[in-house]
Nucleic acid binder design. Structure first.
Lengths: 303, 303
DNA sequence: ATAATCGATGCAAAATTTGCAACGCTTTGT
DNA sequence: ACAAAGCGTTGCAAATTTTGCATCGATTAT
């Protein structure tokens, strides 16, 4: 888009941090780029960059403008996607920010289902912790977010909320598999493999532990839910996950069951989008599919 | 804004209906304008105009694009207004779509109050019936709408709702001034001066009349609330208004009082904006002021 | 039939954008 | 203390893009 060139150049300067570096990235001369920035600032009415000895940084006005630029870009993409839709060609690109738990089973299946009907659509799957996922939405770099226990929820439009109990994960045949329900205090007598504080599961566990006067002292702390799953079978430890990322115990190769709700309150897996934003056709339809799929899971859980 | 030129030209063609007429309006040659349109369509990926023998008309893709253009324009204005705000200069322009009843007292007072603090801000007051006011919001040609009993309420974000009883308006000393409450059936025995069907007051009266098995047969039907007020004193007729557009009877030069609520249900005067839209700073602040003022009126009514 | 109006196009003139070289300034490294 | 390197900025000529003019082909109105 030729008329968006100035915006592209501004973004390049923001990314590069200086006109000269941005000039290389954009195959322009520093002087030409400089004059476009100056020209824009004059038209806009205010400077949008601070001139520092080491380069350029956005000033507050520039930050506001960047929001506008991002909105304008994604809204144009939305229009083009809608136009493509009414021309009969369902094309487009869907970007999702999601928690790790969705990666092994849920999202691959959903994407396959969608692409079977609309092969022209491509996907970006960005693995983000819950705070990052919300930032992704706000900066328009993801269309949808599927996260467990989001933090802020400002500028977050909830499309669907699925309750998820925290499950303990342990080796097959562990003593934790016995008894009518699994209590948190029993888990705490084992070696603990926990996700870091950025994750909702850890949050729920910390709250639960504090309320029974215990501390969480993990043997292994990791950002990888995959590592948690695999480690527990090596050293007879106990890890924690949400069930959407787990096969049934009989297929999984290790045991898992929900923690008693009176000990650890179930969290919510939320599907959401940027508040007030009109999504491109493809993303909106995929969002609807996800809502239906999550509602299906909710039905299974209660049954 | 230089980079918005293409959009301006597209809008000019839409308005003029042909490239040649639009070329005159924009001080360009038909050929230059033609090529800019063609160039844009090529970049955009699809034609946005239908070429008719008599000129150009937007096709569906073009309609979608026009929405984007309008959004983009008003969002840029919002950013500039916010930037002006953080530079200390409170400037800007506020456009309001409103019912006639707000014109005589309420809006002039509110505007005067606002401009006493922010003299740099200018206003557009567009008198619209309730359907038109909502269209104004949707097309971004008004920032705020203040309307009695809006029709659709899709894409309408309610900022405040003030209940307003329908008042009957009659000459001083009329028999309607007697009795503890004013019943609709008493009014219907007089000559009626009614607003047209486009207005909420008429709507409420029609519903009320039907439910007591009567018909409304107006002597005078008009779009002007001003005419209603003045006519009733000439021919001992009865008109209907909402109180926000009326002075107290002792100052007004004619009588008025609310109709009994069991006869005519009170309507709502709604202050609203386009759903999901971020308003320019000036409009947002004025909106807040209106909310406070309306809340003050609500306090008086209940007192 | 004829005139009028529409959008489209080839080509040269006008306007804008770009690249090159150089300047003044601050920070960094020796 | 000094040189080197990095930064944004500016004058001027070359390159690119945009515009105006004349004209074509097609359709509608008189």
């Amino acid at each position: 888009m030729r008329y968006l060139r100035t915006f592209e150049l501004i973004e390049a300067v923001v990314r590069a941090g200086s006109i000269r570096k941005a000039a290389e990235d954009t195959n322009l001369t520093a002087s030409a780029l400089n004059r476009r920035i100056q020209g824009f600032e004059q038209e806009f009415g205010w400077p949008i960059f601070e001139r520092l000895p080491r380069g350029m940084r956005l000033n507050p006005a520039g930050e506001l403008l960047m929001h506008h630029i991002r909105l304008q870009r994604t809204d144009l993409a939305r229009v083009q996607s809608q136009v493509a839709d009414l021309s009969g060609e369902r094309r487009g690109h869907i970007s999702i920010a999601c928690s790790q738990a969705l990666l092994p089973y849920f999202l691959p299946e959903q994407i396959a289902i969608y692409r079977a009907v609309h092969p022209g659509v491509t996907f970006s799957i960005n693995v983000r912790d819950r705070a990052q996922a919300e930032r992704d939405l706000a900066s328009y770099s993801s269309d949808l977010a599927l996260v467990f226990e989001p933090v802020h929820l400002v500028e977050f439009d909830v499309l669907y909320a699925l309750p998820q109990s925290v499950h303990a994960v342990y080796p097959t045949g562990s003593a934790l598999d016995d008894g009518p329900v699994l209590r948190l205090r029993d888990c705490l007598n084992h070696r603990l493999v926990l996700p870091t504080a950025a994750y909702g599961v850890r949050d729920l566990l910390e709250i639960a532990a504090t309320s029974i006067g215990r501390n969480l002292t993990p043997t292994v702390e990791t950002e990888s839910f995959d590592l948690i799953r695999h480690y527990v079978t090596r050293e007879d430890a106990v890890g924690f996950q949400i069930p959407i990322g787990l096969k049934p115990p009989e297929e999984a190769g290790f045991g898992h069951r929900p923690l008693a709700h009176q000990d650890v309150r179930p969290g919510q897996l939320l599907l959401g989008q940027m508040k007030g934003r009109a999504l491109p056709v493809a993303s909106a339809k995929f969002g609807q599919q996800l809502v239906a799929a999550l509602a299906g899971l909710a039905g299974q859980q209660s049954a």
